[in-house]
Design a protein around this nucleic acid. Sequence first.
DNA 1: CGACTGATTGACATAAATCAACTATGGTGG
DNA 2: CCACCATAGTTGATTTATGTCAATCAGTCG
Lengths: 241, 241
Amino acid sequence: MTNSLILKLEKYDRLSDDEKGALDNAIARIRTVEADEDIIREGDRPTESSLLLEGFAARYKIVSNGRRQISAIHVAGDFIDLHSFLLKTMDHGVLALTNCRIALVPHATLERITDEYPHLTRLLWLNTLIDGAVHREWLTAMGRLSATAHMAHLICELYLRLKAIGRVESDTIQLPITQAELGDTLGLSTVHVNRVLQELRKEGLIRFQGDALTILDWERLKKVGEFTSTYLSLQNEDRQP
Amino acid sequence: MTNSLILKLEKYDRLSDDEKGALDNAIARIRTVEADEDIIREGDRPTESSLLLEGFAARYKIVSNGRRQISAIHVAGDFIDLHSFLLKTMDHGVLALTNCRIALVPHATLERITDEYPHLTRLLWLNTLIDGAVHREWLTAMGRLSATAHMAHLICELYLRLKAIGRVESDTIQLPITQAELGDTLGLSTVHVNRVLQELRKEGLIRFQGDALTILDWERLKKVGEFTSTYLSLQNEDRQP
DNA sequence: CGACTGATTGACATAAATCAACTATGGTGG
DNA sequence: CCACCATAGTTGATTTATGTCAATCAGTCG
């Protein structure tokens, strides 16, 4: 198995052999988590950071009356809680939406890397900055778009992120996320999620049966969701961290 | 004038003399921006990052029909766009809410620092991670709290952040932000912001006349806003980056 | 003194939540 | 093997929070 961490970071910039060497034994162990289990809980102070190898996971917070808000959805290849390396205490939990396979990178290793490999450090930092960019985009969609537009926006994002890791086949992604979880992501009720999805279906923008979500009209879906992909930093263009 | 960058980072962890030396000439120049002017525009590719020395600023995005969403409010001492060092292209604009004085740190200097001072680098990284934590908290408040609770939450946050930089006097902060801007922050209409503020006033939680906002009942305000301050990382507790 | 900008108010419209079924689906244990 | 049960999706009726529209008011600046 190629080291997923190397794959992940090479998306941002070329790595030297030396850097690759440093990453080669960064992964201390592999862990699996069942669907609907917590990967990390709010308040935890992990000593390792989790790189998601397989599956879907979501960061979430719970507010008083038990309502839940999902603040990020993670797919294979995402470094879920790299921020815990410096933030120390988790300000949110991470839930496995499906069965997950996770590679663990000890914080001690990350510290060694930051001590010795500045360029690699910048790439790791960049990784967390992209998370921040996604948060801002979600904030904007949540605050200023209609429920339907927000849903379209989320679908566009997930589609492109899954495409970037080769998980698109004939315009279709596997999205093993319930409507209740989508509601917690968009800040909507389950019932309204259902209606919004029906609207997108009726408009001929998507098909969504079981876990299979097919994009029927990408251009129009993007337009409805007011989606532009730049914030995802999917192409490593003219960046030399 | 003491170097504000040193002050800022010392909040997170002790700095060595060597590190302080490195920061001493990090600030290349000072810039002032008038209220309601853009400090940076979406799409810009700045070659310097902005440290806000004085004033209030807001990060924002515009969506189609001209509606605006503010994704962060910054106060004196905040490193507004440190992330542009690695993200390169601004995914949002930054607006001066008041007249602002800004210190500029060239990206080239940041690169040198990251090459030579790993501990300092981790502190800068941490600074951007806290921004991310605030984004997540806002996302939760936006998605799952009522307008009133959300407003209370924001007030609690701004109060504590201003307190941390010594800008609280007899439970009062100067908050030079219009109700329209508050609406863009919370994802509400101006009219509703007005009503929500009146409710908080009627409940005896705050006084808010002109720019002066006084906390009348901190405990109850926190409770209404479901506010806990941990995400702000205001006390450098047991963190040794 | 206008002419702004920002705050406030009231009447009304609407998006989304809530409540309460009901249906479909898949897994499991008797 | 199939009845049962749980989970997820769907629907309709109704309520509620918040938005919109349109004035009015208050302070401030030139």
